[in-house]
Design a protein around this nucleic acid. Structure first.
Length: 416
RNA sequence: GGAGGAGUGCCCGAGUGGCUAAAGGGGGCGGACUGUAAAUCCGCUGGCUAUGCCUACGUUGGUUCGAAUCCAACCUCCUCCA
C-alpha cells in the first residue's frame, strides 16, 4: 500500500476511497504543507441525500478531521436547469423556494459529519446559484469560454461515445460540464479551494475544472475521485423496495435505515465498514475476518455504527434493540414503526387488506390479496390465509396488533 | 424548412384487427433453502365495493360488430440534409 506524507491521503488509501487523482504527489505535498480547502458538489433535487451520497460526505469528514476545510457545494444553480444526462424528461423544474427547502434538509446530513462555522477549518456550505444565476452570456464566453477547449471536451467519454453512436447531444448538456468546471474556478477564487472530490463518474467534470483553473487563474488545482460503489452483486447501491435509502429521518425511519445496513451481503461487509463507519482500521479488520454465521456480528456493528453516525446514538440503540427483539427473540418490540388506528374501527372490525395498504406494506388491496395467496401475511405472527379477515379488538396483544409482511417487514397498529 | 424513423406497463422490449391486462427479459415483492447474507429454485407483479366492472399501448377524433394494431390531425423525441 502506498504511504503518503499527508494524513488525509493515508486515511483515504487505507479505507479504500481512492480511485483516481490528477496529481497525487502534488496534492500530497500541498496537504502536508498547509490547511487546504476542498469541495464536493451535491444536487439539490430532493430534500434529503441518500446513501449514494454518503461516501462523498465521508470524504469531506475525513478531510476535516485530518485538519482541512471542507465545502459542501449545493447545485442550486445547476438544479434550475436539471442535469440532462439522464433520460428523465418529466423532471420538473424546481422553484427557488423548493430548492431552498431542499438545501435545509440536505444540510442536516452534513451537520452529522461536518462541523460548520466560521473558523479556519470549519466547514462551509456554498451554492453555485450565487454565481451562476447572474452569469452574463457574453462575459462568460469572453472570460471563461475562450479557455474551454472543445477539442478536449470532445475527447470526453460521455461526449465521444454519443458522437460515435450518432446519438443526440444537446447544447445544454454540453454546457452543463462547462458550468461545473466553472464552479471550481469560483470556489478557488472565493475560498481558495484547491481540491475537488467526487465519484469516479465525475472525473471528467472535475478535471475540466482543474484545467480551467490553470488557464484562467494559473492555479494548480487537484482532482480526486472515489470508486463508484456497487454491491458485490453488482447492483447499484442504495436502492431498496421503497426507493432510495434516505439519510434523513423524515424520509426513512431509523429502524429501516438500520435494517438497510444489517442486510448487507457478506462480501460487502468489510468494504462498507471501512467507508461508512468511523471505526479504527484494526477493529474493522477483526470484524471483516469473521466468516459464516459469525459475520452477522459484523453486520450488526456496521448497522449500529452507520445509524449512529447519521441518526444519533439513541436512534441506533433503539433500532438495534427493536431488531433483536423482533428477529432473535420473536418478541413484540414496541419500537417497530407504528401507525395509529381509531378505536371505533377496532370495535366495529376493519378489513385487514385496507390496513395493510394504510400501513404502507402493500400497494393496493389487490396487492394485499396476492400477498395473502403467497403466504406472506401474518398478524401477531400467525399466518393468515383468509383475505376477508377483519381486525378487531380481539386481536390486541399487549395493546398492539402486529402486522407482518414477509419476514422482515413489520408494523404495529396502536389504538388511538 | 426538407427527407426518414420512433412513441407500448416501473424499465427494456415483442406485438400490425378479435385467442391482448398485452410475449420475453430486467427490476421489484413473496415463498423454499439459510445466517435478517449471497447464489439457486418456485410463485406473484393495473385498479375496484369483483364470477362482474373500470382504466391502460403519445393526444384527439374517425372507420369497424370489434382497434395497441387501420385512417386523419396534432404533440413529443431521434437521425440525416439545408
Amino acid at each position: 500500500m502506498t504511504v503518503y506524507q499527508s494524513d488525509f491521503l493515508n486515511v483515504l488509501e487505507e479505507r479504500g476511497f481512492i480511485h483516481q487523482c490528477s496529481n497525487m504527489e502534488g496534492l500530497d505535498k500541498l496537504l502536508k504543507s498547509q490547511t487546504t480547502t476542498a469541495y464536493v458538489g451535491f444536487d439539490c433535487t430532493a430534500n434529503s441525500l441518500h446513501v449514494g451520497n454518503l461516501i462523498s460526505i465521508m470524504m469531506l469528514h475525513w478531510f476535516q478531521t485530518t485538519g482541512h476545510r471542507p465545502i459542501a457545494l449545493m447545485g442550486g444553480g445547476t438544479t434550475r436547469v436539471g442535469d440532462p444526462s439522464g433520460k428523465d424528461e418529466s423532471r420538473k423544474l424546481l422553484t427557488p423556494e423548493i430548492i431552498e427547502t431542499n438545501k435545509t434538509g440536505i444540510k442536516q446530513a452534513f451537520e452529522r459529519l461536518l462541523y460548520f462555522g466560521e473558523g479556519e477549518k470549519d466547514a462551509q456550505m456554498a451554492d453555485n446559484a450565487d454565481w451562476l444565476l447572474d452569469l452574463h452570456y457574453i462575459d462568460f464566453l469572453r472570460d471563461v469560454g475562450r479557455h474551454l477547449s472543445v477539442n478536449q471536451m470532445l475527447q470526453r467519454d460521455s461526449v465521444r461515445l454519443r458522437l460515435e453512436r450518432e446519438q443526440h447531444l444537446s447544447f445544454l448538456e454540453f454546457n452543463y460540464m462547462c458550468l461545473q468546471a466553472y464552479d471550481f474556478v469560483e470556489l478557488y477564487k472565493n475560498y481558495d479551494c484547491r481540491l475537488q472530490m467526487g465519484g469516479s463518474d465525475q472525473w471528467g467534470n472535475i478535471v475540466s475544472g482543474v484545467d480551467l483553473g490553470r488557464r484562467i487563474e494559473g492555479a494548480e488545482l487537484y482532482a480526486l475521485t472515489t470508486p463508484l460503489l456497487t454491491t458485490a452483486s453488482g447492483t447499484k447501491m442504495g436502492k431498496t423496495a421503497q426507493g432510495a435509502v434516505w439519510l434523513n429521518e423524515t424520509r426513512l425511519p431509523a429502524y429501516d435505515y438500520w435494517q438497510f445496513w444489517r442486510n448487507t451481503e457478506d462480501a460487502d461487509v468489510k468494504r462498507f465498514l471501512m467507508r461508512f463507519t468511523l471505526l479504527p482500521i484494526e477493529e474493522i479488520n477483526r470484524l471483516g475476518a469473521l466468516e459464516g454465521a459469525e459475520i452477522n456480528e459484523a453486520k450488526k456493528v456496521l448497522a449500529y455504527e452507520a445509524t449512529r453516525i447519521m441518526r444519533g446514538e439513541e436512534a441506533a440503540k433503539q433500532a438495534q434493540e427493536t431488531a433483536e427483539k423482533t428477529f432473535e427473540q420473536g418478541a413484540l418490540a414496541d419500537n417497530l414503526p407504528t401507525i395509529e388506528i381509531a378505536k371505533s374501527d377496532l370495535e366495529n372490525g376493519i378489513g385487514m387488506l385496507g390496513l395493510y395498504v394504510q400501513a404502507g406494506l402493500c400497494a393496493s388491496n389487490g396487492d394485499a390479496r396476492r400477498q395473502v395467496k403467497g403466504g406472506a401475511i401474518r398478524i401477531n405472527d400467525k399466518a393468515i390465509n383468509d383475505e376477508r379477515r377483519t381486525i378487531t379488538q380481539a386481536d390486541l396483544a399487549d395493546g398492539y396488533i402486529k402486522l407482518s409482511l414477509g419476514k422482515k417487514k413489520h408494523i404495529l397498529l396502536k389504538p388511538a
